[in-house]
């Protein structure tokens, strides 16, 4: 108490000065119209900017929950996409009273392990057998395809990345509606893959979008793969295009696993073809 009194005694003139100066400013602001307008405009702008900063600060810490909410919402929306449904050809027969039959389902997952600098790269996701993940399922991120499930445990799955020497994807050049050739990772650059086996007479050009083909057994049609950045002729009759991947492999976090409900049926026919060719 004594020290407080001592403080007040020492700084009485400063305390008085501050209090009386505030009083003077209150008088100025209240009795001068121009000063009043200016003061309230300035203070409104000041407090508005503070509120803006505080909201931005709060929303930063809510990013995680907003993100997972968006993933859930995206999953629901993705289930409604036209590509997820098999169109029952109604000019031949009707099996049931619905026109569309669902073909693809998606399971949201998070990447918990990822490599991009090895000759053969893999990802680990936090969904496994218990979530319905099976070997051979396609995995993609919101930006583009990522890989194919290689192995599954109860709670995790190992995904063979597109950045793997053995990973092959069936592509389609969107602008030409051309489903030809195959996508492979050849150079050890995590941003680029190569599209080979395209007829030299096709008009493949820089800037064209490469998406998944309708013949792909792992992915639905039209999922982004990348963009053509360079085209060269090889062996005299084929084109080889360098494709910049859409997905950023070094920043993968949220991914979706594709469950093809027709896979078993399609595999049956694939095996038939293989047997016939052996």
């Amino acid at each position: 108490m004594g020290s407080v009194l001592q403080f007040i005694k020492t700084y009485l003139h400063l305390i008085l000065f501050v209090v009386l100066q505030i009083l003077s400013f209150i008088l100025i602001v209240n009795f001068h119209v121009y000063h009043k307008t200016l003061f309230f405009n300035t203070s409104n702008a000041f407090f508005a900017s503070i509120t803006e900063y505080s909201n931005a600060y709060k929303s930063y810490f809510q990013l995680k929950s907003s993100n997972s909410q968006l993933v859930k919402e995206n999953l629901v929306l993705r289930k409604l996409l036209k590509e997820n449904y098999y169109i029952q050809p109604n000019d031949t027969f009707f099996v049931s009273d619905t026109l569309f039959k669902q073909r693809y389902k998606y399971i949201a997952a998070q990447v918990v392990g990822n490599t991009t600098d090895n000759p053969n790269n893999y990802l680990t996701i936090n969904r496994g057998k218990e979530s319905g993940i099976q070997i051979g399922m396609g995995v993609f991120s919101p930006l583009g395809i990522v890989g194919i499930v290689e192995d599954v445990s109860d709670n995790f799955a190992l995904v063979m990345s597109v950045l793997h020497s053995k990973a092959v994807v069936s592509p389609k050049i969107q602008e030409l509606n051309l489903s030809q050739g195959k996508i492979k990772w050849e150079e050890r650059n995590p941003d680029y893959v190569f599209l080979s086996g395209i007829n030299r007479y096709e008009k493949v050009a820089k800037g064209q979008k490469v998406v998944t083909s309708p013949y792909s057994t792992n992915f639905p049609e039209n999922l982004p793969i990348g963009t053509v950045v360079d085209v060269k002729e090889v062996d005299g009759s084929f084109l080889r295009a360098k494709v910049k991947l859409s997905a950023n492999f070094s920043q993968l976090r949220e991914v979706y696993v594709v469950k093809d409900l027709f896979k078993q049926e399609l595999n049956y026919f694939d095996n038939k073809i293989k047997e016939d060719n052996q």
Partner: peptide, 25 residues
Amino acid sequence: QSVLIFFSVGIFLDTLLNSHGIHAS
């Protein structure tokens, strides 16, 4: 004392000149 007296004189002048707080400050 100086702070108090000077403020009082300023506020009195403000009253006479209708300047409301300017001379007090």
